[in-house]
């Protein structure tokens, strides 16, 4: 709930003479809150805000990490948006990935948490569903290659040949049309972990007596219960997971790198972050990589605001 002075602030009315004094008074009243915030605020400023501001600054320079950065204005952005066709492929692939994987993983995280929380064996099941997140990316890459190997020894090819669906093995990770669908599948498999666990935790917060009350009001089926009680009460967790789903789907790279390498076949698995990684750590062109990061940030931020508008009636987090 906003106080009067904040309403004034938002509406943009010129401050009344006593406003500064009131502000200071309000700050003094809440000084404990500032103390609670202080330890994190210091670390956040030094190790997050400063590096981000530095990167934004570097995006206007040419910087190869050996010579000092050279100011070149908007050149990086111009090159990136007008002349870099590989970047545009990365944008296209990232959007393709995000539009499918983001919503699917968001919904799956909730549905599985909801289903498992109803089971008697929810403790072992929670561990099992979280298991792929416990295993390192290297092991996951190996497993993916067992399944998707492009010869007939790959488990999927072997299966398809045996049931007679195909006669020659498919090059799953060497076919430009198949690379993205398989990256999406493997990423979905791996991404269940954290959002799922947050939902499990959130489900414990739902006041159980509300279900009984609702049953008396005629909420009959489990699905109705979920839609009318559980979902509204889990709004904070769902908003959190929505933001994290957007962030992680726009930042897809690690699993794509492990599966298809860099550069991938015909750039079919090339993403925005792959492009950034390429320029930052392979070509040592940090200014250009920073410009990619800034554009990615603008993408993510904008989409995030739109999704929040849709999900939240309040319009803020």
């Amino acid at each position: 709930m906003a106080t009067a002075s904040q309403v004034v602030e938002r509406v943009g009315v010129r401050p009344a003479p006593g406003r500064i004094a009131r502000l200071i008074e309000q700050m003094r009243k809440e000084k404990v809150a500032y103390l609670f915030l202080a330890p994190y605020a210091i670390v956040f400023f030094v190790f997050t805000i400063l590096p981000v501001l530095t990167a934004i600054g570097l995006s206007f320079t040419y910087y190869n990490m050996l010579q000092p950065p050279k100011w070149i204005g908007l050149t990086n952005y111009r090159l990136l948006l007008l002349d870099d066709s590989v970047f545009l492929i990365g944008v296209k692939n990232t959007l393709y990935f995000a539009i499918i994987a983001g919503p699917v993983s968001f919904v799956a995280c909730f549905l599985f948490a909801w289903l498992i929380n109803m089971q008697k064996a929810r403790k072992p099941l929670t561990l099992i569903f979280y298991a792929p997140s416990l295993v390192s990316g290297i092991a996951m890459g190996l497993i993916a290659s067992y399944f998707l190997s492009g010869d007939r020894y790959g488990l999927l090819n072997d299966f398809l040949i045996r049931i007679g669906a195909i006669s020659t093995p498919i090059q799953f990770l060497r076919d430009a049309r198949l690379i993205m669908p398989f990256i999406i599948l493997v990423q979905l498999y791996m991404s269940l972990g954290n959002g799922f666990l947050v939902n499990i935790a959130g489900l414990q917060n739902v006041d159980k007596t509300l279900y009984e009350a609702a049953a008396l009001d005629g909420v009959g089926t489990k699905l109705q219960e979920m839609w009318y009680i559980t979902v509204p009460l889990m709004k904070p967790q769902l908003l959190f997971n929505a933001v994290m789903a957007i962030v992680s789907s726009f930042n897809v790279f690690g699993i794509a790198l492990a599966m298809v390498g860099l550069p991938s076949w015909q750039y079919a698995g090339h993403t925005i972050v792959a492009h950034m990684y390429d320029y930052a750590f392979i070509r040592f062109s940090l200014g250009y990589a920073s410009a990619v990061a800034v554009i990615l940030f603008i993408f993510t931020f904008t989409l995030n605001r739109i999704v929040m508008r849709i999900l939240s009636t309040r319009g803020d987090y």
């Binding site: 981000v52 990167a55 930052a280 990061a293």
Partner: peptide, 19 residues
Amino acid sequence: VVSSLMFASEVTSIPRYLI
């Protein structure tokens, strides 16, 4: 805080190293 989650860590890792 929420916006900072959206800035790719790949490019901030070098400024962070310098700090």
